[in-house]
């Protein structure tokens, strides 16, 4: 398989759908505008300058960074897989099992690279143009590593959700529900540390906060860049957990995939 050729092909596909991407550049800054209004009102009504450990600027920056990270790791593989399974095309892929997973990953690379250029960077620039005063500069190095880990983690998660379609066929609503849960516990709508402690500890068991919350927190400097404050408070701790989740989800994917293969072959072509 020529990886470059495949990525080029998927890139062209993204270019064909560019008007859909471009809509984000209009919609997302508008949402930021509303968010800034909301949080400004809340902060001005509050006696303290800090809410849940965030200043107004870091709160706004939190949303900027987590939205951009989420755009970067966004994946449609769950819907695509469900479509293939419904159509029955999937048998073709099953003859070469591992290729589908590889192919999906390459498609994500191509698709998201395009998105970075046409969505992420313009949105960031627009934000800096209009809302500069709320921008907080942060830790870039470890942040980048963490985001790359998120890229892989989210791929496996959405792939697994898509694989549910092997058993349930119609997973549209279920996928939405799960997406919502994921986005919530990833801290997309609200920083997780603002949740009541009980819910917070529940989220700790799930991999979802490692998709957007953790990279964003690394950016905002919530972890120390070295081991001076101990391992757990250092940036290496969440990075390590991300790596563990990558392996864990990878293994889970292979197990479920083989089960799915058996199920399909058993049912007969």
């Amino acid at each position: 398989m020529s990886y470059c050729g495949i990525i080029k092909g998927y890139w062209k596909e993204s270019v064909a759908y560019r008007s859909e991407f471009l809509m984000s550049v209009l919609i997302v800054p508008f949402r930021f505008f509303i968010l800034i209004i909301i949080w400004s009102a809340v902060y001005s009504n509050s006696a303290s300058d800090s809410i849940g450990g965030y200043s107004l600027s870091s709160m706004i920056t939190y949303f900027l960074i987590s939205s951009l990270v989420f755009t970067f790791i966004y994946d449609t593989i769950a819907e695509e897989l469900e479509k293939e399974i419904k159509k029955g095309n999937f048998l073709v892929f099953l003859l070469k099992p591992f290729s589908y997973v590889k192919l999906g990953f390459l498609k994500k690379i191509a698709n998201r690279s395009f998105s970075v250029i046409i969505e992420v960077i313009p949105i960031l620039l627009l934000f800096l143009l209009f809302f500069r005063k709320y921008f907080v500069m942060g830790e870039i190095g470890f942040f980048t590593i963490s985001v790359l880990f998120s890229f892989v983690i989210s791929y496996f998660i959405y792939l697994l959700i898509g694989m549910i379609a092997f058993w349930l066929i119609n997973i549209r609503s279920l996928a939405w529900l799960m997406s919502f849960g994921i986005q919530l516990s990833a801290g997309l709508y609200v920083p997780i540390d603002l949740f009541p402690p009980v819910i917070r500890s529940f989220f700790n068991f799930l991999p979802f906060q490692y998709i957007t919350f953790v990279p964003t927190s690394i950016y905002l400097g919530k972890y120390s860049a070295d081991l001076s404050a101990g391992f757990v408070s250092s940036v290496f701790f969440p990075l390590l957990i991300q790596i563990m989740w990558i392996f864990g989800l990878f293994v889970l994917t292979i197990i479920v995939w083989n089960r799915a293969k058996k199920r399909f072959s058993g049912v007969g072509a």
Binding site: A41, N45, L194
Partner: peptide, 11 residues
Amino acid sequence: YIIYYNSPGFA
């Protein structure tokens, strides 16, 4: 809910 849990909310 989160806003009101963490602050006085909207004036």
